[in-house]
């Protein structure tokens, strides 16, 4: 079981909010400092390592940019959304961000709640209310990439590619 404190967001949170255009050529560290600077300035100073994002429909809509990496780098432990945009989900897999679809999640959690995730049972629990929701299962191979820290770290760990400097 992994647990994280919940930050709530609405529908259609887009990649330009997570990784604003002017930061596209900055270092990943600078990019992580810019997360949500337009819609929630100061949030990057409040979020703690392992915290959870709970959001509505179509989380991560928008561009190809590595927005998932920024969320991971600013400490987000996992993302639950009603639905996740496909392109953002691919980036989440490849950068090792745990991001899951979970119908009903935006009603079941308030900001500041804890979210307890069990990947053995594919369920997430809110200990405040006692409510438990099903998490949409991710294919095993994709989950192993996510949990392995992303596609390249996983391939390095399996000896498929040479480790990077």
């Amino acid at each position: 079981m992994i647990a994280g404190r919940v930050w709530k967001f609405g529908d259609n949170i887009n990649t330009d909010l997570i990784l604003p255009g002017p930061y596209l050529y900055r270092s990943p560290e600078e990019q992580a400092r810019a997360v949500f600077e337009a819609n929630r300035p100061g949030w990057v100073d409040q979020v703690k390592k392992g915290d959870a994002i709970v959001a509505g429909f179509n989380f991560g809509m928008g561009s190809s940019r590595p927005a998932a990496r920024s969320l991971k780098n600013c400490g987000v432990g996992f993302v639950f959304a009603e639905t996740i945009n496909g392109l953002f989900f691919r980036n989440s897999v490849n950068f090792g961000l745990l991001a899951f679809e979970c119908p009903g999640v935006s009603r079941a959690f308030e900001e500041g709640d804890m979210a307890e995730l069990s990947l053995e049972e594919w369920r997430v629990r809110n200990p405040r209310s006692g409510e438990t929701l099903s998490v949409s299962r991710v294919p095993d191979e994709l989950l192993s990439i996510m949990q392995g820290g992303g596609i390249f770290p996983l391939m390095e760990a399996r000896g498929l590619i040479a480790p990077r400097a």
């Binding site: 561009s63 190809s64 940019r65 590595p66 392109l87 691919r90 980036n91 490849n94 992303g150």
Partner: peptide
Amino acid sequence: AFGIGTSEVEH
């Protein structure tokens, strides 16, 4: 035809 993440371009 679909967009791929920056992470997939190398792949």
